[in-house]
Nucleic acid binder design. Structure first.
Lengths: 167, 167
DNA sequence: CTTGCCCTTGACGTCAATGTGAGGTTTTAG
DNA sequence: CTAAAACCTCACATTGACGTCAAGGGCAAG
């Protein structure tokens, strides 16, 4: 398959594929005229690469991880890298959960039609979050309901709110 | 308080604070000589701003959200923005969870000492994830155990693996 | 043969949140 | 009073994963 086909099937640009190759993440055969040729499997590989990019892994890190994917074996260093990247992702998820909670608080507050009956409004809206404040007292659409309205089904357990290692 | 003190307490650089002001996210009084002065409350405000930045919200979006924080009321547009950003965050969390699972699969595979007894190795390591493959069959440290070893306490419910709206 | 689409390399542009340094003023500590 | 530390503005640099434009070659259909 040529580059355009792979790009289409993997949902990325041809520019991205050439960039991946430039970074050593993706290899290609060449036709006599110099055009790139890929096996079917390249599509899944590109999807994996994209998944890692989306998760915020830099190309250099992905480059270190991919051989481990290919060989099915991880050197101690690669293993350490796997673990530390997992921790990064976990920490990032905790950060996102915290921001999401902040938005939820804003949504709840915004939905209070009677500010004088809303304790949250007597303190700044951005005060540190106290879970006890979040018990259902809202007589109007609450963040959870807004979430369901907007097709949001994701819920994370309380444990996710612990920040882990950082780096 | 002057800028250095706020920066220290909020854990950001003075450059960042001046940038926030430039973007309209933060205001300051000025002494006759031109130095910035902030109230105590600025520390928490900066922390909130940072939380949003960490969650990937661009400054323009935060700028639209902050008035809603201050007034405790959200215009319909601001409300829509709140909901859509919540969805973005949710989708980002799902992406992170997917990448984390990919890393977990790699960790599990890397820990298999006997490739000939490991079904996962007969398919490429990056094959689409089938939850049924992940049942405990590993006679060696599994991703969950690695996670605990590395101080990882985060677990997300299965519902988190659904991708939601994207944009 | 030509139209049109896909491919090539190369190189500069983008975006956003800062880092960094210059060059100068203000505040603070001794 | 003086030196250090903190502050000011302006403005260019950085980083990363691409976008985009330029100038050209390859290849099937009509």
């Amino acid at each position: 398959m040529r580059i355009g086909e792979i790009a289409h099937q993997a949902g990325v640009s041809t520019r991205a594929l050439r960039y991946y190759e430039e970074q050593g993440l993706l290899t290609s055969e060449r036709t006599p005229s110099g055009q790139r040729t890929y096996p079917e499997s390249a599509v899944e590989r590109v999807r994996l690469i994209q998944q890692f990019f989306t998760a915020g892994l830099p190309s250099r890190t992905i480059l270190q991880l991919l051989p481990c994917v290919d060989t099915g074996h991880a050197s101690p260093k690669a293993f350490e890298l796997l673990a530390s990247e997992r921790n990064r992702i976990t920490a990032a998820m905790a950060d996102l959960a915290a921001a999401r909670d902040a938005l939820d608080r804003m949504i709840d507050i915004a939905n209070h039609p009677t500010p004088e009956h809303c304790p949250a409004l007597r303190e700044p809206a951005w005060a540190p979050y106290n879970p006890a404040d979040a018990t259902q007292t809202a007589p109007h659409p609450t963040a959870a309901q807004v979430a369901s309205v907007t097709n949001d089904q994701t819920k994370v357990s309380p444990a996710d709110h612990q920040l882990i290692v950082g780096r």
